[in-house]
Structures are given as structure tokens and as C-alpha cells.
Design a protein around this nucleic acid. Structure first.
Lengths: 236, 236
DNA sequence: CATTGGCATTTCATTACTTGAAACCATCAT
DNA sequence: ATGATGGTTTCAAGTAATGAAATGCCAATG
């Protein structure tokens, strides 16, 4: 059981600097005035806090005057990623999907109301394969993984989307659940020219099985079996 | 030119909460008393700030009472990673290394005084290949990439380490420089049984060439040619 | 069972730090 | 030159942040 933080026991200045950190990371370059406006802060307050982020390496201000994530964010973020239970648990499943289908396999989670985010990737083995990267975001609307993350796919089943948010690709996705909640999507993406005929009917059950198995095999979460991942929700 | 933050223009509470965020992310579970001690804060102050991190999703306190990185850290961290100029620039080089050697290729940066961190990975194409993951840390001492990051390898050349920090592997690494400083290491890691005879003499120059080329080809940093990466230093 | 030690959490008086409005500065377009 | 926009600095006010001390909780031990 995750202990809940007391709702009123936060520190205002700390809240504010963390809010700015989120704003900076969610934009590919944000200017002072926009960051301040987004959090309803005065420009001088936002400037001071952004300077604090800079001094601690969490943000960087480049020549164009825009603030971007600093090296600390990358460093600590990917370290956190590598220790993440969901990502660790997904690795065997992703490898199995590549081995079983030859196509690229992904783990993704919701990131905000409208987008998802790729957290873990195993590339396919074919010469022509879908290419992707950790950290890339995609629209929930119109994508197979998006439908899964929006709760539109029953656990144990799968969805196929051809020519969804990316041209010339066909995606098959299934929900990863923990404690009855959808916490991630497991998906396989192939060039559409290869995803013909019985493709979905062949690949779908494989993806759904791996997704169902993700938190059902104690060995897949070795060392962390006592944690209740149902409370690990990546959506805000 | 990166504008430097004024050294004395930070906000104390914000500094402190960011320091705690760093501490939480650098440990695989830290307890309140240790986090407080590490930053010389009183326990009550640390508790309040850790609760602020929790409330904002940057930290999570699980049943064992230890604080760990929260979903926000993973989410924003990997988004920052995906937008990172160094990682973006390395992608073609990593792919070229895999295409040219068949072995797994990595981009890594220094993370602290004693360790490095894998930021980008392209897996080799062989059935038996080196396996790794984004966010994994490795000791600088005794590793090929570590020697590079410690400045022990001339730009344009390479280093080979057999049976270094990982058994049964041979690593070849070369420095990525920007503005005259070593900002990252590009490396190829193979099972030692394949890295025999002329392996290093064949692979070394390929790695060194790709590393040298990383910030020398305008096309590799499309859209960001105006930034001076020499000031983008990932080491603390 | 009671006691002890270690750690977490709450309380509260103090004041230092945070804040935002206003003034000032810098840049660019007309 | 002027005006608009955005960034930066200044400073007075008061509240938010703080840490010491008290209290609570839990596990280990006798």
C-alpha cells in the first residue's frame, strides 16, 4: 500500500519550482513569460525559480533565451527509468514479442490527457522495421496503444489499428493491468505491407498473452513482489 | 553561448527540494533520515519537502517507507531524453556502428565522479549479443567508456578493454567531443569470443571515426546548428 | 510483559526568506 | 525616434519556511 502524502503539507516554494520543472520538460523550449503565465506566477518569481532550476542542473537556458531540460533531468530521469518496476517487468515480454513476431515491440504509458509516451522499446529483427525511441510521445486518439490506455480494450484482448497516427504502419496493442487498472500498453508495430491477411489474428493473441502475463509471473518482478503496482499510475 | 545563472540568485527552499529530488533518484530507495542527513536538513524540513515531491509526482513512498522516484521523474526524464541534442545526434552514429560491426553500440556520459550512464543504445544484430538498457550505470574505473569519459583517450583515437567491468565482453570506445571537451563516449561491446585477433584494429577506427563525426556533420544536428554543445556538460 | 532505541511525525514560536509591484533595462519593429 | 514586448533588478512587507522539542510508532530484546 502506497502511503498517501498529506494533501496540505506541501511547501509553496517547492511546489512552484517543481511546477516550473514540469512546464520546462513538457515544452521543447519555453520562454520566461510563458512559463510564468502557465503557473500564474509573477515574472520575477518565475525567473528566480527558473534560475534555481538552472543552478541545480535541472534546466538550461540556451542562446535563444528559452528554457529546456538540463542534464540533471536526463541523467536522473533515465536512472529512474532503469530502476522502474514496470519497465523492468516489461523487458522479457518485449523480447518475447520480437522473438515471436519479428516486429518492433513497445511499452507505453499515458502522459497527460491527450498523449502517450514510449517507455521501453525492443526493435524488430527485419531489415525494414518500425523505428522509434524512448521518450517519444504519440497521440492517444487514433492509435492502438492510445485506445488501450484510454481503457477501450478489455484486459486479455487486443486492438489492431492500421494507418493510425503513423502512415504505412499497423499496430496491435493490448492492455497491461495491475490491480484491475490499465497501467500501460504493450504493442507491436509493423510496416503495413507485411501486416496483411491473418496478421492481426496471428499476432494479436501473442501480444495479449504477453500483456496479461506481465504482472502475473512472480519471476518477472523479482525483488519487488510485495509492491502493489495498481497504485503506480503514470497519468496525471 | 549559454547564459550563466547568477550564482547567488537561487531560492533556498527550491534548492533544497531539488537537492532532495537528486538524492531520491540516486538511490534505489532512501529513508527520510538518510536523505535529511545527506543534505544537512532537519528531519522535519526534509519530510515536508519529500512530501512536496510526492504530491507533485516526483517521488513515491512505498510500503517499506523508502522514497523512490515517482512517475513524473520517469515521464519527464524520458521526454527530456528524447529531445536531447546529444542523444539525437548520436542516433545515426549508433546505427552506423551496428551496421558496420554487427555489435551493440552505446552512447554514455559521466554521471557523478565514479560512474557513467548509458543514454542511448542500438543493439547488435547477432544472435549472441551484448544486452544493455538506457539508464544503466557502470563504473568509470576499468571500463573502456569510463577511460574515455575520464579524458584518458585522445580525440580521434580509441581504447579497447577486454574483460573489463563485465565478464566475457570486449569494449571499444572513443570520445565524442564538442568545443574541445569530452562530452560523451561512443562504444561498441561484443562477446569476447568474437573479439579476437584483428577485431580491435578493425572496429576501433570505425568507432573513432563515428565519434569524431558526431558533431562535425551539420546534418546530424539538424535544427540545432546554432547551439554551442561545448557548454552542455553532463558531469556534475 | 515492559523497556529501549531508532526513526518518523507533529507542534509551535521565530524570523528570515519569499514575494510581487514597480522601476529599469534590452531588443526589435515601425 | 518611439512604442511594444519581454527580461531583469530593487525593495518593503509579511507570511511562509524553519528547526528544536515533544510526541508517536514500531521492532527488538530481556
Amino acid at each position: 500500500m502506497v502511503t498517501k502524502a498529506a494533501p496540505d503539507a506541501t511547501t509553496r516554494a517547492a511546489d512552484r519550482v517543481l511546477g516550473l520543472l514540469r512546464v520546462v520538460c513538457e515544452h521543447d523550449g519555453v520562454k520566461l513569460a510563458d512559463a510564468a503565465k502557465e503557473l500564474s506566477l509573477s515574472a520575477s518569481t518565475a525567473l528566480r525559480l527558473l534560475r534555481t532550476l538552472e543552478a541545480n542542473g535541472f534546466a538550461a537556458r540556451l542562446a535563444d533565451g528559452l528554457y529546456r531540460p538540463g542534464y540533471r533531468m536526463v541523467q536522473l530521469g533515465v536512472q529512474a527509468l532503469s530502476h522502474d518496476a514496470l519497465v523492468a517487468a516489461s523487458r522479457p515480454a518485449l523480447r518475447a514479442l520480437v522473438a515471436g513476431t519479428g516486429e518492433s515491440a513497445y511499452l507505453s504509458v499515458a502522459a497527460g490527457q491527450t498523449h502517450g509516451l514510449y517507455l521501453a522499446i525492443e526493435e524488430g529483427t527485419q531489415s525494414v522495421r518500425h523505428i522509434n525511441w524512448v521518450g517519444r510521445t504519440f497521440p492517444l486518439a487514433g492509435s492502438a496503444a492510445g485506445a488501450v490506455l484510454a481503457g477501450q480494450v478489455e484486459p486479455g484482448s487486443f486492438i489492431t489499428v492500421a494507418e493510425g497516427v503513423e502512415p504505412d504502419t499497423t499496430a496491435v496493442a493490448a492492455p497491461v493491468t495491475a490491480g484491475g487498472a490499465v497501467v500501460a500498453a504493450l504493442s507491436v508495430v509493423a510496416p503495413s505491407y507485411r501486416a496483411t491477411g491473418e496478421y492481426a489474428r496471428t499476432v494479436g493473441p501473442i501480444v495479449a498473452a504477453e500483456a496479461s502475463r506481465l504482472f502475473a509471473t512472480p519471476a518477472a518482478v523479482a525483488g519487488r513482489t510485495k509492491e502493489d503496482h495498481g497504485h503506480r499510475n503514470f497519468a496525471p
